[in-house]
Design a protein around this nucleic acid. Sequence first.
DNA 1: CGGCACGCCAACCGTTTGGTTGATAACGAG
DNA 2: CTCGTTATCAACCAAACGGTTGGCGTGCCG
Lengths: 191, 191
Amino acid sequence: MPSRKRDSKRLLVEAARREFGEFGFAGARTDRIAHRAGVNKQLLFYYFGSKAGLFDAVVAEAGTQVERAVTAGADTAHAGGRLRTQLVTVFEALERRPDLTRLVVASPDGNGSARDPVRTLVAELAATISDGQGLGYFRDDADPQLAAQQAVVLLVGYLAMRHAVEPAEDPRGRDRWLDGVCDLLLRSLSW
Amino acid sequence: MPSRKRDSKRLLVEAARREFGEFGFAGARTDRIAHRAGVNKQLLFYYFGSKAGLFDAVVAEAGTQVERAVTAGADTAHAGGRLRTQLVTVFEALERRPDLTRLVVASPDGNGSARDPVRTLVAELAATISDGQGLGYFRDDADPQLAAQQAVVLLVGYLAMRHAVEPAEDPRGRDRWLDGVCDLLLRSLSW
DNA sequence: CGGCACGCCAACCGTTTGGTTGATAACGAG
DNA sequence: CTCGTTATCAACCAAACGGTTGGCGTGCCG
């Protein structure tokens, strides 16, 4: 029989990430998640208690991933370059986690449990901008909080709406967007 | 008995708009839609064939509403003012239709049927920007298509992620955001 | 060895879901 | 008046859903 300890918990979270990202909370099916993970459906309830519990686990895991990404980009010296690096790193982290992107928008009941990771993300970016202001790299009369919010909406929003907003399946659309976001924000923050 | 012809079709579309906007496609319940509309559930299938058919009807209706809004703001003379007017008008139209906002992101299966309205929206804004360039109001080396996409993502994305991105229930957050978006875009488009 | 806790599963259950059936009532046309 | 068409409903159904039960094997600790 199955060699004990197959790391099923992680397999389930990973499968759930794809499922929730693809169908949203209500559209996701517990059977399908279990099947994707290659384990029995009951294991899902054994470990996480309920569908919502599994959802929370997914969000928590994705959240730490993104937080790690944003703090990782924080060791670039020059403030302008640092913001750009952070934006790129966060975007790449979000790309690898399509779930979080959609979860921000499609949480159960609408009361987002994916709220906290997003807020720390905003706070982290706002801190970078504020630092840049202190060093004289950015305009003093810009609102760091607002700029950080704009950044997050541009990044997350694009990943969530890409299909609707982009005319065709342009593979370079992604790069153009990312460059465009960096340019837009840095231009608005510079004197 | 019910006085014949109660305009149930419209009542159903209206109820469905709220329901889909609140719960997304998969989360929406046909019984609840019928109950909200005050008609029998069967009528839903009588008129629209299926849940997906009703969804399409909702999207189509909301789409024309938004298109009307964006073309309405197009008669302001000065190009800079015209763009600002259009952005505000579109935002207000989207606010009145929370459904479309979420539908762009949470369509059935992910293949968005709300795609077309969004694309015409982008095209319309891009045209305004392009006009402004021709008249010398905007930078010539800006990409109108990209700027229009950024505008839409900022507007729609905010409405979809407001709860996650805003720290508290600040009632003035909405106004600050709208002003911020206009400033951001106009600043990036001006010489 | 013995037993208990853990990881795991097949089969099942009550409820809810999208969707159907068959009937009724009110018109408009002839 | 009659007869087909349109609008409406109550009651029903099969399938799918989230979640439960009971049990089996395996390793670890006494």
